[in-house]
Design a protein around this nucleic acid. Structure first.
Length: 951
RNA sequence: GCCCGGGUGGUGGAAUGGUAGACACGGAGGACUUAAAAUCCUCUGACCGUUAAACGUCGUGUGGGUUCGAGUCCCACCCCGGGCACCA
């Protein structure tokens, strides 16, 4: 037996597998298909990184296991090769992007092959290959024909460094996703894909796919579905109306002004009516210089200008209210106009405070304590809560004994015919003796509070009014309380911050928020101040009020249309021409692919024109329709274009007549399992779902959704826990690790290092453990009796148990991405086998087969050394025997009052037998002494807990 | 602010409400060796105590609660990571 030599072994088997075309998928197999997918890499100059390997090795384990289980597996790979980094590198070095791409993909291919991932290389795709992007262009033309791709003057995100337009999804915290430069705004004529037309389906169809919940949530948040109403406010003395979008039609009576986005078209239309129009224009102008990021920055003070002379009419009560323009209203969402309800909206509240606009509360909060669930009749009470200040920043609290409610503010019951403020003054004097008090404010709303009073065995509904009191002086009279009453509480003046922390009861917190923190009530409740709608719930009122004013219920989305053109060279040309006569005309399909012309100067320009615009020969062409002069589109597609459908091409990557044949698409789609990074959730994942749905609509693909299952791996961080990056010099080179430890070790380590879905810091020194594990597996062969199977006379029972447990565990774990525990269970099995004097061939082979999906080379090598003729990777997956998962002895834990006092091995798991055995044990008897156990709890085959009171 | 994760030894982490710390790294001691590396064996959460052990006490971010029993369930809070953020 030779020493473990990973270099020799790995190279040897990679060659054999390639020659034998081991991992090619069949398009015609009758077997169950499995299409596993990982995100095809962008072939950067830096080469493969550890994060790629985490994802690819994990899916490889799944793919190999499924093959062993007899499935026809497609696990393909390709290159997402268009994109800025290649182009930027090309600009810097003067090497053609196509050449850079070739070098980089060659390097990636070499690296991946050295890892022994079981990709079907025969289906390799490359988005920059004209035979590929022909179909990217074709899909674009189909969208163009359906009106989903169109050119429009738009206010767009512009990256001044990359000198190109960016999609909404490519702007992270106001910065360019690629280079981190602060994004500015520009008005440009841009190609747009109408992804918003699919917003509802992109949201709803998430119900039918098996994505990790956090992925669904993130997509749903991004799509931002919101149900509300469009309501119209007439403008007095004109024919114009302002349509607002609101999710809170229930607060329509609380509207005290209306706000338009500064860009709203009505502003211009009404210019004649606006007496301060010059001020308005000046304001709008002042916003233009401000970058979007600043305008929407956190804590940015809201600004606005009133449109003097413009008066809106509240459709529900005819009230006349002012109209403002303000920077906090976005033109691009809803209708670009909102109704402002300062009493019940945080933004309107802040704005109204600043500009001294009126507040009008219309909602009474309501809270039911859980203990009144199902109670129908309540005894009504009127109550007050008084927030009492000393004028020096202290709040009066009453610290009751915990069973009486803990720390509260002054409170009490309103007597028949009494005004709440009178109650408050009276209660204050009675409870505290303070009399020199002034009423600052009394709430218009009452807080309905339903609770169950156990002392009276009755359910109450308390309508609570809040009273804000300031003491002129701390003059304190003797209270009329009896001595035993006085002992129940302590008066304490607390600074505002402490009071905020220590008072927990909901009514009191509400009063505090209202008067001290001056917070608006944002929740739902019961209406008041709302004429005939008084008393109904918010939920009901949203419908009723919308109907009453002739509004309509609508759904809005945060998702914006996809700005699709880029002013860069290295992308797919957009296959249309602009003809003076015919307008924008699609190229005929037979002219596809429209090849990206070779060019000398591919740097982006400052004018915002694509570098292609300099190729006048190429640009000037003939209109396909009228044969007259026409110009080619010079913008190119974004990187996300090619990746939006690549998984379809894998099904039939050489097809010249279609993006893939119908037959193959029918066979392979949808993808059964797609693993990728969380960072693509709102980019690639959403975009490709959109394209897929479009292709479904035009009958190209047979499924509504591209991916049946989507999972995501955690980031691999540098050793210090920071992000790996070339600039920080903390990256890890797979080439070195493969050379030093071997691909198998690297793969085992990446699977073992921690939970697959969580971020984890790289630690090269921990890798030695994985290497040792592989060597020990390899060296174990010396102890293996190859000629004989393990005896079945019961002498190997302890091993049969652990072997069957491991088969089950590894199988389950690979399917549920518990790769770290799969590896650890294999280590446990190895430890057990190493303890044996001899190991039988069939026992050893189980270990090898279970390890093969994760460490394919070394297992294949040993498998061959054992004399097996066929590849280990073609062997059927091991099945466990459920009968052998249970041992016939049980390790029983004995607890007394929940504390472990003894463990023993029992030969029965019969409840009565075990219990009596335990109660007869000397140690246990000694502990219990003369006390009598109150209960003995038995958990079958596991545990006995003796409950002995007073021990 | 809102929405997701997460917080367990020196480290990465394991644990269907049932012995917390599996497995691994690191560390200590020992075997082998002229020696070192590699390998193998033993120990390795903290504290108390003893010659030594058994044993005992504490221990999963903090504070409460439910339970015979809580890392796990419930409530409140703190900290870290990620996403969204004037979306009406």
């Amino acid at each position: 037996m030779n020493k473990y030599d990973h270099k020799k072994i790995e190279k040897k088997w990679q060659k054999v597998w390639e020659t034998k075309k081991m991992y090619r998928a069949s398009d015609t197999s009758k077997a169950k298909k499995f299409y596993g997918l990982i995100e095809f890499p962008f072939p950067s100059g830096a080469g493969l990184h550890t994060g790629h390997i985490r994802s690819y090795a994990a899916m490889d384990a799944v793919a190999r296991k499924r093959r062993a289980q007899g499935e026809n597996v497609l696990y393909p790979i390709g290159w997402d090769a268009f994109g800025l980094p290649t182009e930027n590198y090309a600009i810097k070095t003067g090497i053609q992007p196509a050449k850079v791409t070739k070098t980089n993909t060659d390097n990636f291919r070499r690296q991946l092959k050295a890892l022994g991932i079981s990709f079907d290389w025969s289906r390799e795709v490359n988005t920059t290959d004209p035979e590929y992007y022909k179909w990217t262009q074709w899909i674009f033309l189909q969208m163009f024909k359906k009106g989903l791709a169109f050119k429009k003057m738009t206010h767009v995100n512009w990256c001044p460094k990359d000198k190109t337009v960016l999609a909404n999804e490519e702007v992270i915290d106001g910065k360019c996703e690629r280079c981190g430069t602060e994004v500015t705004k520009k008005d440009k004529n841009q190609w747009i894909l109408a992804i918003t037309k699919y917003a509802d389906r992109l949201d709803k169809d998430l119900d039918d796919v098996d994505y990790l919940e956090k992925i669904k949530i993130q997509q749903r948040n991004w799509i931002g579905r919101s149900e509300g109403a469009e309501l119209s406010f007439k403008i007095k003395g004109t024919e114009e109306t302002i349509t607002v979008f609101t999710t809170r039609a229930d607060t329509l009576f609380g509207v005290t002004y209306v706000v338009l986005a500064p860009e709203h078209e009505l502003v211009k239309k009404l210019s004649k009516n606006i007496s301060n129009y010059s001020e308005v224009e000046e304001y709008i102008e002042s916003l233009k210089g401000v970058a979007e990021i600043e305008r929407t920055a956190e804590g940015k003070e809201k600004t606005g200008v009133v449109l003097k002379g413009v008066v809106a009419i509240n459709p529900v009560n005819g009230e006349e209210i002012p109209v403002w323009i303000a920077d906090y209203v976005l033109a691009s969402y809803g209708t670009g106009a909102v109704m402002a309800v300062p009493a019940h909206d945080a933004r309107d509240h802040v704005f109204a405070l600043k500009y001294n606009l009126p507040f009008k509360p219309v909602l009474n909060p309501i809270h039911e304590r859980p203990d009144v669930a199902g109670v129908k009749s309540f005894e009504l009470k009127n109550k007050i809560v008084a927030i009492v200040e000393d004028g020096k920043g202290n709040i009066l609290t009453i610290n009751w004994k915990p069973e009486l409610g803990g720390r509260l503010f002054v409170g009490g019951t309103v007597e028949q015919g009494e005004l709440p403020q009178v109650t408050a003054i009276r209660e204050l004097a009675e409870e505290t003796g303070y009399t020199d008090a002034k009423i600052v404010d009394v709430s218009e709303e009452t807080f309905t509070y339903r609770y169950f009073a156990h002392s009276k065995n009755k359910a109450f509904e308390a309508k609570t009014t809040f009273v804000h009191i300031r003491l002129n002086s701390l003059t304190q009279k003797e209270t009329a309380l009896e001595e035993n009453e006085k002992n129940k509480f302590v008066l304490e003046w607390l600074p505002v911050d402490r009071a905020r922390k220590e008072v927990k009861e909901i009514l009191h917190v509400y009063g505090f928020a209202k008067f001290i923190d001056k917070q608006p009530f944002l929740g739902e409740g019961t209406l008041f101040n709302s004429q005939k709608f008084d008393g109904i719930s918010s939920e009901q009122a949203k419908k009723d009020i919308t109907k009453a004013v002739g509004g309509k219920m609508v759904v809005k989305y945060k998702l914006r249309d996809w700005i699709f053109s880029r002013q860069r060279y290295w992308g797919e040309p957009i296959p249309v021409v602009t003809c003076e006569k015919c307008g924008i005309v699609a190229l005929p399909e037979k002219e596809l692919p429209l090849k990206l012309p070779t060019i000398k100067e591919f740097a982006p320009t400052d004018t915002g024109e694509s570098p292609l615009a300099t190729l006048t020969k190429w640009v000037n062409t003939k209109c396909p329709t009228c044969k007259g002069p026409a110009k080619r589109e010079t913008d190119t597609m974004p990187q996300w274009a090619g990746s939006s459908w690549y998984y379809l091409r894998y099904a039939d990557s050489k097809n010249k007549k279609a993006l893939a044949s119908e037959k193959n698409l029918k066979y392979w789609t949808p993808i059964d399992w797609y693993n990728g990074g969380m960072e693509h959730t709102t980019l690639h994942l959403l975009y490709s779902r959109f394209w897929h749905k479009f292709l479904y609509d035009i009958g190209v693909v047979p499924t509504k959704e591209p991916y049946q299952k989507r999972t995501s791996h955690g980031l691999i961080l540098a050793e210090g826990g920071e992000k790996m990056s070339k600039s920080k010099g903390n990256t890890v080179s797979p080439d070195e690790l493969v050379a030093l430890y071997g691909a198998d070790t690297l793969r085992v380590y990446e699977m073992f290092m921690g939970p697959f879905d969580q971020a984890i810091a790289w630690n090269t020194s921990n890798m030695i453990g994985s290497r040792r594990f592989i060597e020990r597996v390899y060296n174990l062969e010396e102890n293996v009796v190859t000629k004989k199977k393990a005896p079945t006379d019961g002498s190997r029972k302890h091993l049969e148990l652990i072997i069957n447990q491991t088969i089950k565990k590894v199988g389950d774990d690979i399917e549920s991405m518990g790769f770290n525990t799969a590896v650890s269970s294999l280590m446990i099995l190895l430890n057990a086998l190493e303890k044996e004097e001899t190991v039988y061939r069939n026992e050893y082979e189980v270990l090898l087969q279970l390890l093969a999906p994760i460490a394919p080379h070394v297992t294949e090598e040993i498998w061959a050394e054992l004399g097996n003729k066929k590849s280990i990777h073609t062997m059927p997956w091991q099945e466990f025997d459920p009968k052998k998962l249970q041992s016939d002895t049980w390790k029983i834990v004995v607890q007394i009052n929940g504390k472990v006092r003894e463990t023993f091995v029992s030969h029965t798991d019969d409840e009565e037998e075990v219990k009596s055995m335990v109660l007869l044990m000397d140690k246990i008897k000694a502990r219990i002494g003369d006390k009598t156990p109150a209960r003995v709890i038995y958990v079958k085959g596991k545990l006995v807990n003796i409950v002995v009171p007073g021990l």
